[in-house]
Amino acid sequence: MKARVTVTLKSGVLDPQGKAIEGALKSLGVDGVSSVRQGKVFDIEIDGAEKAVVEATLKAAADKLLANTVIENYRIEIV
């Protein structure tokens, strides 16, 4: 099974990298950008036939390692 875990910063957490990218986009003349937040994407291949079981495994993986839940949220998709 293929899955994607997306990790993003919680709202309210300052993201200096996102701010720098936002500034760079503006200086490139990309119009209309009001905010950029940087995150991470993990594409994972995982054994298992049952979606619910795989989701639970990935949730544990995200809580234990992939995300720091003090500052980050995550989303799991089976693709």
């Binding site: 957490v13 300052l14 200096p16 990298q17 720098a20 720091n68 003090v70 500052i71």
Partner: peptide
């Protein structure tokens, strides 16, 4: 901090 022995997080320096 990552191990949970201390609270909080060390983020990227504000000046990058």
């Amino acid at each position: 901090c990552e191990s949970g022995l201390l609270p909080g997080v060390l983020m990227r320096n504000s000046q990058l």
